[in-house]
Simulated assay, not measured.
Amino acid sequence: MAVLGATWVLLAGCGSTPADAGQEPAGVAPSATTAPAWTLAAPIRIDGVRTTDGGRSLVVDAEVPDGARDCVRSLRGELDTVEHGTVYVKVTYETPSLDRASGCTDTQQVTATVQLREPLGSRKVMVNSMDVYTPVGAEHSPVLRQCGENGCDPTPPQCTSSSYRQAVNDTDIPEHTSWEERGCDDTWLVLDLSTRMGPACGDPGDGCPSSSVAQRWFYQAEPSGWQPAATNGDAGCTGIHKILPELPEHLCASLPQLARR
């Protein structure tokens, strides 16, 4: 939705009405002018966070609007609070990009610096109450590591329900997908995933038809959790061993054929 800027109207002086009332004074445009309104906003996306000055400052890389005219002003990085081992920061700026007439339809990369009261140390950083970063486990220090859906310290892969949920969350499949374990050990996990398709339905038996699409995923254990390695719906080991020859026989020998759709 476009945000209209303030409209300034030139008014005639008070007192008696001049003889040429109704006519525009000389030099005044016959129509009011408009200008895009500047609005406080947060970055479109946070691209990374790194420390500088011995950890006493944070540099936040962000994506903001851009265009033929000025699209960003008053870019600021501020320390909000520090609590429970997390440093909360805010990155804001003013922009007219909500008004299509502003021409701010492109994007640009900017950096905002946040001064800390003391070195970051091992604490996490949360930007605008959304993106979380941590120096722990960062491979390219001083660039911080971005945390995922499973937090900054995901549970090591295990043959447990919570660990299976992490595997499903890290798989490129629709939400509300259920799973059935087909095999698990310290290195490999096999799950059959079923996603309900069709019209939105209520309780079973309400007469609303539905169907499910099933896929079989094979996961390999990594330090960050179960990582998708391959998918194959064939019975037994023949099909999956063409893709993952290292998969142990005991995890695929009894696999049933998935229904083909």
Rank of each mutant, 00 (worst) to 15 (best):
V132F: 04
V213H: 09
S74K: 15
A2S: 10
Q108F: 04
G48L: 06
L40P: 01
D170L: 07
A35T: 15
V3W: 01
T86A: 09
T113E: 14
S102H: 01
D53E: 07
S212V: 04
R50L: 09
R261G: 09
L191M: 04
R100T: 11
D203S: 11
C237D: 03
A214C: 00
Q108H: 05
D131W: 03
Q158V: 03
S161F: 05
P228I: 12
T92G: 09
C237K: 02
L144A: 04
S122L: 06
T39C: 13
S254D: 14
P256M: 05
R260P: 00
R100Q: 13
D80N: 12
P142V: 10
L255Y: 01
R73A: 08
Q257R: 12
A101R: 11
G85F: 13
V60G: 01
G13E: 15
T39L: 15
A259Q: 15
L98Y: 02
E181C: 06
S162I: 07
T195W: 13
L247V: 09
M126L: 11
P96C: 10
H176S: 14
G27L: 07
Y93A: 06
T81M: 07
H250V: 01
G148F: 02
D203N: 07
V110I: 11
I44M: 09
R123C: 00
D99R: 00
A26F: 03
L189G: 00
P25M: 11
T134D: 07
R73G: 05
M197H: 08
G5C: 01
R100K: 10
Q109D: 10
A259T: 14
Q257L: 12
V143R: 10
R76V: 08
Y133M: 08
V125Q: 08
L120T: 03
C71K: 02
Q115C: 02
V168K: 08
C104I: 05
I44N: 06
R56H: 04
E139A: 14
A37M: 09
I173S: 05
G233F: 02
Q257V: 02
N150W: 05
V87P: 00
L120Q: 04
T7Y: 03
L75E: 14
E94T: 09
E246T: 10
T105A: 10
G55I: 08
A42H: 13
T17C: 11
L11K: 13
E180T: 10
W38R: 01
M130E: 11
E222P: 00
K124A: 14
V143H: 06
M1S: 07
A214M: 02
P36N: 09
A68K: 15
D131E: 14
E24Y: 12
L40S: 12
G103M: 09
A12F: 07
